[in-house]
Amino acid sequence: MRVKAIISYDGSQYQGFQKQKSTKMTISTAIEEALVSLQINSPIVGSGRTDAGVHATGQVIHFDLPDFWNDLEKLKRNLNRKLTDIAFKHISFAANDFHARFGAKKRLYRYVFKTHKPSVFEQKYISYYDAFDPSLLIKALKIFEGKHDFNFFHKTGTITHTTIREIYRTDYVERNGYHFIYFQANGFLRSQVRMMVDAAMLCARGELSEIQLREQLKCQTKHTTKLAPPEGLYLAKIIYG
């Protein structure tokens, strides 16, 4: 029986979502070990991979259950007791061909930062950038909208058949001293969101011109490869259908 689960996690103690040979401190490994302890020997598949230190409020995964696990509320309670910094928000039965990654149509990321140093209680969850011009930030973000080849906006190391992605929407909002950047797209490359955030913030502080940003987006000249700090990034929502 295939199930779909929506999970959230504090990524600050983990080396990313995807399993790695060099460490057990990944989200996938922690969840699969919890499943094995409940006699569920199924790998999990996520809607997308998040980097080390990156969080999620709406990651979606799928895995397969043995027949004797038909009480999903009990399963959720047991998993949440066993896991640290990872929470199962909802588990539901899914079609046998449901695929958390390939079935996803849209992915939404949220980036949170302040313009003064976060407190010790926030520093694992909120990033910091110097003062900037919000109007320049909004202009920079809008440049990313549409279908583009993001070959100059990702880290290498992940095999993908194409670096073309379509960004449907970008947003910037400020609330009570917290700054939020949103990207919604059909998919993202490795570290693409963090690289776009930092490039947009360079524009917002006058350190990168709109012309330079467009040149990099057109794969003409690579002006920056810096990544925004991981602490402020959240995989917020996955949309299917």
Rank of each mutant, 00 (worst) to 15 (best):
E32S: 01
Y172L: 11
N96Q: 11
K218N: 14
K105H: 15
S28A: 15
Q184I: 15
S8Y: 03
A236H: 12
S12T: 10
V60H: 06
E231V: 03
A5R: 09
Q212D: 01
K218M: 05
D171M: 08
Y182D: 14
K226R: 08
D85M: 00
T224W: 03
S209C: 01
F121D: 05
G53D: 03
N70H: 14
G146H: 06
L202M: 14
K21T: 09
Q13N: 15
R194D: 01
I61D: 14
K4V: 09
K142G: 01
K24W: 01
R214Y: 00
I31G: 03
G53Y: 02
Q13W: 04
N70Q: 14
N176S: 13
F17T: 08
D10M: 10
F102M: 10
H55S: 03
T156K: 15
Q15Y: 13
A104P: 07
D71M: 02
S127H: 06
A100M: 05
R77Y: 04
R49M: 01
I239H: 08
P134N: 06
E32L: 06
L83S: 07
K114M: 13
A104G: 12
I238N: 03
I40Y: 04
N70V: 03
I126Y: 12
T50C: 09
Y125F: 13
T84H: 13
K74W: 12
L75G: 02
I44L: 13
H90M: 10
P229R: 00
L65Y: 10
A100I: 09
E32Y: 07
F113E: 06
L189P: 01
E33K: 15
F17N: 06
G241K: 12
L235E: 06
G241R: 12
E32V: 05
G48Q: 05
Q192Y: 02
D71W: 03
I181Q: 10
I164A: 14
G53I: 02
E207T: 00
H154N: 14
H99L: 06
A5Y: 11
